[in-house]
Amino acid sequence: MKAPRFHYVRPESLDATLGLLAEYGEDARILAGGQSLMPTLNMRLSQPKVLIDINRIEALKGIAVHDGMVRIGALARHVEVMNSPIVAEALPLIAEAMPHVAHVAVRNRGTFGGSIALADPSAEMPACILALGASVVVDGVRGRRTIAADDFFIGLYETAREPDELLVEVLLPPQKPGHVSVFMELSRRHGDFAIAGIACHARVAGGVINDARLAYFGSEAKPVLGTRTMAILNGKAWPTASNEVVNAALDEDLDPIGNTFGSPATKLHLQKVLTRRVLDAAVQRARAP
């Protein structure tokens, strides 16, 4: 099967793109890597009027450090992020998560910005930027906005980006000394959609966890922070904190959605298992030389 009829435009500049978005709004779809969009078009699950191909826009490419933040351009391919020395050095959470993003062929074309903008509930990158407290930069004819990741993900495939706005880059704080990152996910087979997963970033010293940010994905409608769990863990030594208290907090924090890969009960259980494993690993990593 192939896509239904649509108009295709390939603007050469950011301004031209934003103009098109202003003109077409919800009738337009942005084509970046196409790894999620093309299958839905070809299966005729989505019928946009206009496809705006942004692949020619230089301003959306690249990975760089700027003003103490790592800037990942919306068009950076997953493979570029995976192979980036900047990411390896400053964003170990992203580096650890990237091999879990689908498969080589998908990573070769799929983009970092595309993954964030789509906000698939089982995707790895949205959870990572949430755990890292990153910011998402969107642009439009009405002006440029910087949105905290905490505010960006609103619901199932729903974000704070308006239809006339383009996600242009993500700004991520480099990992500070004394902090550790841990990424874990469970999927049926490697590269499949996550059934449950956690992106974790925390300051850990002497087995004591501080400022933990646990972003849960795969089980919820969107990546969510385990805020109650984070609060309980704060300033406490792990694993001395009672498992039951943590589990009770997770019962409050999470509201899993069942699908063919797992029931809500199973997903909640798996997130509890992963929480324990992630925290064990965080403490272990903090101890490692």
């Binding site: 049926r188 059934i195 890969f261 797992g262 029931s263 199973t266 259980h269 798996l270």
Partner: peptide
């Protein structure tokens, strides 16, 4: 025998 079924 998916992980879900085994866990159940």
């Amino acid at each position: 025998a998916t992980p879900e079924r085994i866990w159940r």
